[in-house]
């Protein structure tokens, strides 16, 4: 279990979870450099991000702060918020 949580979430991982949990806008290319593109421009609303955060929590066995996640307006900010928690979980486990 602790092995799994030590891998940080990558942009690629996030795109996979986004596609699974919230689908994909036909007019947006998620394979490009989207780290700093606001989620709203990528076609994801707050509910889509709630669903995405829920999946990340289940897959990684962590608890994310709702307010911190709501403030993450881009994939980069989302990843930073998740990976801070992941690091904390890893060091706690260690």
């Amino acid at each position: 279990m602790s092995e799994a949580v030590q891998e940080p979430l990558s942009l690629e991982d996030l795109v996979t979870v986004l596609r699974e949990s919230a689908g994909e806008d036909e007019e947006v290319d998620l394979s490009g450099d989207i780290a700093d593109v606001p989620f709203s421009d990528l076609g994801y609303d707050s509910l889509a991000l709630l669903e995405t955060a829920g999946r990340v929590q289940r897959q990684y066995g962590i608890v994310l702060d709702d307010e911190a996640m709501a403030a993450a307006e881009t994939p980069r900010l989302f990843l930073t918020a998740v990976n801070e928690v992941l690091c904390g979980a890893a060091s706690n486990a260690g």
Binding site: E20, A22, E24, E26, G43, A48, E51
Partner: peptide, 8 residues
């Protein structure tokens, strides 16, 4: 139906 709407 658009792919984005399928999960919801």
């Amino acid at each position: 139906v658009p792919r984005r709407l399928l999960p919801q």
